[in-house]
Amino acid sequence: MGGLIYLKDVVTLKLDEEKCTRCGMCLEVCPHGVLKMNGKHIAIRNRDACMECGACSRNCPFEAISVQAGVGCAAAVINSMLGRKDGDCCCLIESETLPLAKKKTTCC
């Protein structure tokens, strides 16, 4: 299986070829093989495989990559729509004022 692919043509990943210096940091951190090394700079190999984790742009010393990073989690989206501050998915970090019993877990 060549890796699971989510929806097509939704990803916000952008590459500024001018700024790229071929340092290759983005290739190290990308967990889905989205990028590849091309002759003069990095190129996007498989855009739809991008999960917008933001690792590439955060680790690019030259700000050549941009992406609207976020966690693709429906529960977190619903929580934030409902205005819950602890609007997170896998990793609910509760505000410290909440009693232990109220701690909630979802996913991963």
């Binding site: 989510y6 990803v11 917008e52 693709g72 979802t106 996913c107």
Partner: peptide, 18 residues
């Protein structure tokens, strides 16, 4: 809701789906 547990869903995609 399993999107949050998966290892390959993007936020843009989840917004689109929802």
């Amino acid at each position: 809701n399993f999107t949050g547990c998966s290892t390959y869903t993007s936020l843009s995609g989840v917004n689109r789906e929802m």
